Amino acid sequence: MKSQEKIFSRKSAPERSARMVETIYGCKWSLTVYQLLAHDINRPGEMVRNVEGLSTKVLNECLRKNVQFGILNRVSFNEVPPRVEYEVTPFGDKFIRILDQLEVLQNEISEADE
Rank of each mutant, 00 (worst) to 15 (best):
V48M: 05
V67P: 06
K28E: 05
F77M: 09
A38K: 10
E114Q: 04
Q101W: 01
D113L: 12
V80M: 08
F8W: 04
Q101N: 01
T89D: 06
R43Y: 05
K28A: 01
F91G: 02
C62F: 05
M1D: 07
Q68V: 14
V88Q: 08
D100P: 00
F8P: 00
T23F: 04
L63Q: 05
V51F: 07
T23I: 04
S110M: 03
D93F: 01
I109F: 12
L36Y: 14
S9V: 09
K6P: 00
R43I: 14
E46P: 05
L59C: 07
R74K: 15
K94M: 03
P82Q: 03
Q106C: 01
E111Q: 10
R49A: 11
S12K: 11
I98Y: 06
E85L: 03
C27G: 04
M20S: 13
M20E: 11
R74S: 03
V75N: 14
E5G: 02
I24M: 12
V51S: 11
H39C: 14
P90E: 13
E103Y: 03
G92T: 07
L36K: 06
I98L: 04
A13M: 10
S3Y: 01
W29R: 01
M1C: 03
I109H: 08
V67I: 06
K94S: 07
T56R: 15
V48H: 04
D40F: 12
L59V: 07
C27H: 05
E15R: 15
D113N: 12
V80D: 10
E87T: 08
V80C: 12
V48L: 04
R43F: 03
A38W: 07
K28S: 03
E111A: 14
F95W: 00
M47R: 04
N73S: 14
V48I: 05
V58T: 12
E114H: 04
E46D: 10
S12L: 14
S17G: 07
S110R: 05
Q68C: 07
S30Q: 01
S17Y: 08
E46A: 14
K57H: 10
E108D: 11
S76R: 09
M1E: 11
V84K: 07
M20R: 11
D100K: 04
R10G: 01
L37S: 11
N60G: 09
L54F: 09
E52G: 14
N107Q: 15
R10E: 10
C27D: 11
E108C: 08
K65G: 02
T89G: 05
L63A: 07
M47E: 03
W29A: 00
P14E: 13
S9K: 14
G45C: 13
L36I: 07
V67M: 02
Q106T: 03
S55L: 08
Q106P: 00
Q35V: 06
E79T: 15
P81G: 13
